[in-house]
Amino acid sequence: MSDEEKKESDKVDQSRRNFIKNSGLTIGGLVLGGVAGGLIGSNSATTKSQTTTKPVKSHETKEFTEAMQFFSRKEDFDTLAAATECIFPEDENGPGAIALRAPYYIDKQLASPWGRNVNDYRKRPFKDGQTPLNRGEIFLQGIRKLDEEGEKKFQKSFRELEEAEQIEILQDFESGKVKLEYVTSAEFFAMLRQSTLEGVYCDPLYGGNKNMDGWKMKEYPGAQMSYANVIESKEFVKIEPMSLSDHF
């Protein structure tokens, strides 16, 4: 390491230490950002899985795009994060929704025109079960209902429950058993599931699929420009993924 690099590294290390001090979080050498904060000590499966994630390099510690654009309450974000991890959990194949940053992806999408249904037909009347709510409103309502159900069934907010309890609540949502206003819990769950998969497998440009690890797990090569040399191959050809930033 050159002197200059060393100086840079020290500087980053210093800010990293400050960050850890400020957030008070570190497990197994990994700095945990806001998402995991709400999960520690309450969700053993998730916490354990966090420790298996590769430590981030010091110069990557500060992720300026990882904050809330849409949500105003950190509790909502943390409950969302816990729900996404149930849908796509960390396992022996690789990272789960939280490590892949799916919750940040969803936050950003809900703040986008899509979250406000800007490109959709929104004229009244809404009938035959069509919802008058926009996607952001549906997510907020659904997430808070997850917490309410947690309190009702297990006397804890959703994000503080054991994974098995969280799964039980999500199954109630999926089957439409939980009552929401102007939308069904099944519709909310379908959006939550789809958005989680989007956050896991989107181009990293959107804030999810951290480090293209979602694609790597799936052996999906991403935004390649040509497969002319692969197309006739009898055997499977594994290609290291490429993202849109490589086209830029």
Binding site: I87, D91, N93
Partner: peptide
């Protein structure tokens, strides 16, 4: 494409641990 293609044999749950395992295994 990875978001739209999560095909799993019928009877597999559509989310959670088993879904993740099977959807990764059968993607290609």
């Amino acid at each position: 494409t990875p978001i739209s293609s999560n095909f799993v044999p019928s009877g597999t749950p559509s989310w959670g641990k088993e879904f993740k395992k099977q959807s990764l295994y059968y993607f290609n």
